[in-house]
């Protein structure tokens, strides 16, 4: 499943403000500088709002949000 446009927009804006390329599906968002620990917290909030899923605090770690593909798999697992 594709992520909602609002989620993609957040990642693209974060990439732009950090001087990074727009991320592809399998790109490592943390290595690219699109996300860091603080940005991840904001990203998870957007993800919850846009997809309707609830992300437990224990799941808020980079391993679940390393790439767009991984995020898609995570969202699917929470539906």
């Amino acid at each position: 499943m594709a992520l909602p446009q609002g989620v993609i927009d957040f990642l693209n804006e974060s990439a732009r403000s950090n001087g990074a390329e727009q991320p592809g599906a399998s790109d490592d968002l943390f290595q690219m500088g699109v996300l860091d620990s603080f940005a991840l917290v904001d990203f998870v909030t957007v993800l919850e709002q846009e997809t309707g899923i609830s992300v437990p605090d224990g799941d808020v770690n980079p391993a679940n949000f390393q790439s767009i593909e991984q995020i898609e798999r995570y969202v699917e697992s929470r539906r």
Partner: peptide
């Protein structure tokens, strides 16, 4: 871990 958990 501190940042991610503390923030939320």
């Amino acid at each position: 871990s501190v940042i991610l958990q503390a923030s939320r």
